[in-house]
Write a protein that binds this DNA or RNA. Structure first.
Lengths: 143, 143
DNA sequence: CCTTGCATTAATAACCATTCTTGAAAAAGT
DNA sequence: ACTTTTTCAAGAATGGTTATTAATGCAAGG
């Protein structure tokens, strides 16, 4: 599952009690258009193209609902606005500190690692995520 | 090495070219008083007690210098201001999402994991850190 | 249908952490 | 000591995000 299926979208809204409004749908559709990980502001710009009436605040609200019901994932990087990811499968992203571009990292199994963290703290771990930053190949070549 | 020794402090300032001013020293001393991981605001309040003239902006500047020369470490958690840690040894912290309390996690070796990340991306990885959040035992007992 | 109630929305104001700007002060170099 | 450079303090400004509020829309019951 890379992006939520139509049936899954409806199911999650139904279970959560939230209603699937046109605005929330528009935000979700906008996210599908992006291949990368847009910020709230970027999502807003795309949504506005189709429906110029929506306000930035509405997009923020919609994003927080979508995140709450598990359709999207929020990634907090240091020094940059929160970015949203439609792919909720376990995976990890790396962000270029120069151009802001975000790429996926595969081939590292974080889940075992997270399990070990859970064993080593009396806290009830609710989230364990990686914040990986670096310089992407393009920026690197530009010296 | 848990907190920087006097000689190390001077050495790092010397090498960096920054001067070890009374304000920067005051910020460093304030950090020593905290057992936990204060925010810039909290550091400011402590520094101000001894020297009421310092401004919040000065504390921010001092913190960024101290971080740059490696005497302290900045931890960016989602939904909360940056917190500063005097312990620059490899270790990981977990933050309670209810009370904000920060605790250390030991017994998990992140370095091997980080090395594997480096192998799996064309990015030049500059930082790989964990953002672990959960509910601390005290908050948990309070239901 | 019509109403009554509750969720959602839009617009704007407010917030908060952080950074920027500017003139003054201090330190370093000569 | 004098000049040049760096650092500082204070407050304004910024940027992302949340809160507020009034208006709107949908839904169930009469």
């Amino acid at each position: 599952m890379v992006s939520a299926l139509e049936s899954d979208v409806r199911e999650r809204f139904r279970r959560s009690g939230y209603t699937l409004t046109s605005q929330r749908r528009a935000v979700l559709e906008a996210l599908k258009d992006f291949k990368g990980h847009p910020s709230a502001e970027e999502v807003y710009l795309v949504v506005k193209k189709r429906n110029p009436k929506v306000a930035l605040g509405t997009v923020y609200q919609a994003l927080s609902v979508l995140e709450e019901i598990g359709l999207i994932e929020a990634k907090h990087w240091s020094e940059s606005p929160v970015r949203y990811d439609l792919n909720t499968d376990p995976h990890h992203d790396i962000r270029c500190t120069r151009c802001g571009e975000v790429a996926e990292i595969t081939g590292v199994e974080f889940e075992d690692f997270a399990a070990r963290i859970r064993e080593n703290t009396p806290y009830e771990v609710t989230s364990a995520s990686l914040v990986i930053e670096g310089v992407c190949p393009i920026c690197r070549s530009e010296n």
